[in-house]
Design a protein around this nucleic acid. Structure first.
Length: 413
DNA sequence: CGGCTGCCTTGGAG
DNA sequence: ACTCCAAGGCAGC
């Protein structure tokens, strides 16, 4: 397919305000792919969006299918505004919106650290973990896929959804990039069995039924978009306190959460993920297995009344964090969540030997070498085989050399 | 009504 | 070979 890439643009953004290498990989969106060294790409809103970053700038570029570029004006008309410029204006707004760039993340980190010693202790190695403002429908389906699942496999499933049901936007190095499928595309009766065959398990039925429910709404996706927080993040102006918050969050948040619970495969946790990452409700705090472990380890939950993660405990944990961190509690939660991920655990270890081993294994992967490592004879890191069904997108595994953190034995979710 | 149990799918790691 | 676990949800008791 003929493509047309706009030039690289840049925005002044520090790594404290945004670290794409963390924010695009920490389980908010499951769709970003490494398209080159230190470059991340994804099909969004009819274009392929690519990002790079240096310590002072976010670099971005949009690549459009040539057919979607407005046809140049006839030669007898004055060519006033180049089409690329208008595309870039659109893309700039998209980038700012997607990264919530109106918010001052550095100041928020300071406020969370001042209010919470545990945040102060854990956050320094995880600067720039910024809440994304994703498409609500994509977030909904992505997090329905997330139940009893891991980020690597979720990413593969979402890639399969896009590959089989989403529009092809273009290629980078012969790798196809598809946009996220519409509700109508997933509401076809054949979808459930097909997704089952693709390895979605019991989530196949959830996705199909939810797609039907949304597609049958009076105004379709308008219903979902109508649950969005109407105000955009702009914390930069006033007193600077993170914002006091009524217990349980604003009414718009509570309403959106309740509405989402009517969908198949959407419980309290998935609904909170959609509220936080798709609908812009910053006080939403999804309490998943990681957050529940954090609450037990660092915030004295897991005993007495709240010894197991019941519905009441879920609310108590979320309310505790809202009271502690304030209006953007969900943003703060995302920082601690990321710090708890295995994929980022190398930052928590003394980086001497481990660092070297990681580098060596990584180089072998990059070179496509299938030989047994001379360093680690039992290296488990291996290029994942492509499943039988053609077209399954491989998701490169994180090198996980370091040992995992100890888990509580008595955990029950 | 709230809490608990078993079950649902898959695949990687130990 | 086997168990546990990975950003859960749901029906039944």
């Amino acid at each position: 397919m003929a493509m047309r890439a706009s030039e690289w643009q840049k925005l002044p953004v520090s790594l404290t305000e945004l670290c794409i290498n963390t924010s695009l990989r920490c389980g908010q969106s499951f769709r970003w792919r490494k398209s080159a060294e230190d470059e991340w790409s994804c099909a969004l809103h009819g274009r392929i969006l690519s990002f790079r970053q240096d310590p002072e700038h976010l670099h971005y570029r949009a690549t459009f299918p040539s057919s979607s570029i407005p046809t140049p004006p006839p030669s007898n008309e004055p060519s006033a505004a180049p089409s690329v410029a208008s595309d870039d204006d659109d893309t700039l707004a998209l980038v700012k919106h997607y990264f919530n760039l109106g918010a001052n993340l550095g100041r928020l980190y300071e406020q969370w650290a001042a209010a919470d010693p545990n945040f102060k202790k854990r956050a320094p190695k995880f600067a720039g973990v910024r809440m994304l403002r994703q498409d609500p429908w994509e977030a909904l389906i992505g997090f329905i896929c997330s139940s009893n699942n891991n980020i690597s496999r979720i990413s593969g499933m979402v890639a399969n959804l896009c590959l089989h049901y989403g529009p092809l936007i273009g290629h980078i190095d012969d790798v196809p990039y598809h946009d996220f499928p519409t509700p109508e595309a997933l509401a076809d009766p054949k979808v459930e069995a097909h997704l089952m065959k693709l390895g979605f398990g019991y989530r196949a039925k959830y996705i199909y039924k939810t797609a039907v429910m949304v597609a049958e709404k009076e105004d379709g996706l308008g219903w979902l978009d109508g649950l969005c927080n109407p105000e955009l993040p702009a914390f930069g102006k006033d007193t600077g306190d993170a914002g006091e918050l009524v217990e349980g969050g604003r009414e718009g948040y509570r309403n959106a959460h309740q509405e989402l619970l009517a969908l198949h495969g959407v419980g309290p946790k998935v609904a909170d993920c959609v509220c936080l990452m798709g609908l812009g409700w910053s006080e939403s705090v999804p309490v998943d297995t990681h957050v529940w472990q954090i609450a037990q380890r660092d915030y004295k939950f897991g005993r007495g009344k709240h010894s197991s993660l019941t519905a009441a405990t879920y609310t108590a944990v979320a309310n505790h964090f809202r009271k502690l961190w304030g209006k953007e509690a969900g943003w703060a939660h995302s920082v601690l969540f990321t710090a708890d991920l295995k994929a980022f655990s190398e930052r928590l270890v003394a980086k001497t030997e481990v660092k070297e081993e990681t580098t060596i294994v990584k180089e072998e992967l990059d070179a496509g070498v299938a030989q047994v490592s001379k360093i680690k004879t039992t290296a488990k890191t291996r290029v994942k085989r492509a499943p039988a069904d053609e077209g399954h997108v491989m998701v490169k595994a994180e090198e996980e050399i370091t040992s995992r953190s100890k888990r509580r034995k008595t955990r029950r979710v």
